[in-house]
Deep mutational scan, measured.
Amino acid sequence: MAAAAAAGAGPEMVRGQVFDVGPRYTNLSYIGEGAYGMVCSAYDNVNKVRVAIKKISPFEHQTYCQRTLREIKILLRFRHENIIGINDIIRAPTIEQMKDVYIVQDLMETDLYKLLKTQHLSNDHICYFLYQILRGLKYIHSANVLHRDLKPSNLLLNTTCDLKICDFGLARVADPDHDHTGFLTEYVATRWYRAPEIMLNSKGYTKSIDIWSVGCILAEMLSNRPIFPGKHYLDQLNHILGILGSPSQEDLNCIINLKARNYLLSLPHKNKVPWNRLFPNADSKALDLLDKMLTFNPHKRIEVEQALAHPYLEQYYDPSDEPIAEAPFKFDMELDDLPKEKLKELIFEETARFQPGYRS
Rank of each mutant, 00 (worst) to 15 (best):
R67I: 11
N262I: 15
R301Q: 04
V188S: 07
L267V: 10
I89V: 12
M333E: 02
K207A: 09
E250H: 02
S122M: 07
L287M: 14
H120V: 04
Q355R: 02
A9G: 09
N297G: 03
M108L: 13
L112Q: 14
N158K: 15
W212K: 05
F354W: 03
K300G: 10
L237W: 02
H299D: 11
R70M: 09
I256K: 11
M98I: 15
H141W: 03
H310N: 14
F59I: 15
D175K: 11
R79A: 01
Y64D: 13
P23N: 04
G230Y: 02
M38K: 15
L137N: 09
L121P: 11
L241M: 14
L28W: 02
I140T: 00
F296C: 06
R261M: 12
T26P: 00
F348K: 10
F331C: 08
V104G: 13
E197W: 01
Q249N: 05
H180W: 11
G136E: 10
L308D: 09
R15I: 12
V18T: 08
R191D: 11
A219D: 09
W212R: 14
K270P: 02
R148M: 03
R194G: 13
K164T: 09
D100R: 10
L112W: 00
G8A: 01
Y102I: 06
V145W: 05
Y316G: 02
C127Q: 15
T295W: 05
F279Q: 06
Y25F: 14
E81A: 08
N27Y: 15
S41V: 13
L130F: 12
A189E: 10
V51E: 13
S142Q: 10
V46C: 02
E349Y: 04
M199F: 10
T160F: 01
T295C: 09
T160E: 06
P268Y: 02
P298S: 12
A2C: 02
N276Q: 11
M293E: 04
L258E: 01
T63Y: 13
I211C: 11
L265F: 10
V18E: 09
S246A: 09
I31T: 00
D20L: 10
F228I: 15
A5K: 03
I89R: 04
D283R: 10
I256C: 09
I103D: 07
Q66M: 13
I90L: 00
D88C: 02
K48Q: 13
P229C: 01
A286E: 05
D149F: 04
L121E: 08
N27P: 07
L155N: 03
L241Y: 10
E305W: 01
L241D: 07
L265C: 09
T351R: 05
L313I: 03
M98L: 14
K285N: 15
Y205A: 03
K344I: 09
G230R: 08
Q119R: 10
D44T: 13
V18K: 07
E109V: 13
L107C: 05
P152Y: 02
P247K: 03
T185K: 10
E96D: 13
Q17H: 15
G16P: 06
A195G: 05
N45A: 13
H61Q: 14
C166I: 10
L335A: 09
P247F: 01
Q97S: 11
M38N: 15
Q97P: 06
L267I: 08
Y233F: 15
Q119W: 05
S153W: 06
Y131D: 00
A92E: 02
I227G: 00
N158F: 08
Q355F: 02
H61L: 15
R70E: 09
R261N: 01
L170I: 09
A174D: 06
M98K: 14
N45Q: 15
C216K: 04
Q306P: 10
I198Y: 03
L237R: 08
L252D: 07
F329N: 10
E33L: 05
A282G: 02
S320K: 10
L343T: 05
T181G: 04
D288R: 03
G8Y: 04
I84K: 10
R24H: 12
M199E: 10
V273T: 01
K207I: 10
N27L: 07
C254A: 03
G32H: 00
L121C: 06
F331R: 00
I347K: 11
E322V: 13
L244V: 12
M199H: 12
H125T: 02
M98F: 07
E12R: 11
A5N: 02
P274I: 02
L130N: 06
S248N: 08
H310F: 04
E60V: 13
A9C: 01
I72D: 06
Y102L: 04
V14F: 13
R15G: 11
F279M: 05
P247C: 00
I227W: 03
A42D: 00
R50C: 08
I302M: 02
G169V: 14
S122I: 13
P58F: 15
L258Y: 11
P280E: 08
D162W: 02
D251F: 08
I89P: 04
I227D: 07
K344N: 14
A195K: 04
H125E: 07
L222A: 09
E345A: 01
N87Y: 15
S223I: 10
I165G: 04
L244K: 05
Y30I: 06
H141R: 01
L146T: 03
Q315L: 14
F348N: 11
K270R: 04
Q132R: 01
Y36K: 14
R191S: 11
E326C: 03
K117Y: 04
L76P: 09
S248D: 07
F348I: 14
Y131S: 05
L130P: 12
C40I: 10
C127N: 13
E12P: 00
Y113S: 10
A42M: 09
I56P: 14
G230F: 07
L146C: 01
N257H: 11
P196C: 08
Q62G: 10
E60L: 12
N154I: 15
P196W: 06
K114D: 12
L107I: 03
K138E: 11
T159E: 11
N297E: 05
N158C: 02
E81H: 03
Y36E: 14
D149H: 06
G32R: 10
R261D: 04
Q119P: 12
Q62C: 09
P311E: 05
F19W: 03
V273E: 15
G215F: 10
H61N: 14
K73E: 12
P229D: 01
S29P: 04
W212F: 10
A282L: 05
P152C: 11
S41G: 11
K164I: 15
E341G: 07
N297A: 03
D100M: 11
L252N: 00
I217W: 07
L265A: 07
V51A: 03
P247N: 05
Y193M: 03
Q306N: 06
K48N: 15
L244Q: 14
Y312Q: 01
T351A: 12
P328H: 12
C127V: 14
F329M: 07
V51S: 02
S266E: 02
L69R: 15
F129P: 09
I103K: 14
E314P: 01
E349P: 01
T295I: 09
Y113G: 08
K54G: 12
R24E: 05
L338D: 02
L155M: 13
R79Q: 05
G32A: 03
F279G: 05
L278H: 08
T185W: 12
P93G: 01
S246Q: 00
A325C: 02
N297T: 15
A307D: 13
L234E: 04
E334G: 00
G230D: 14
I53H: 12
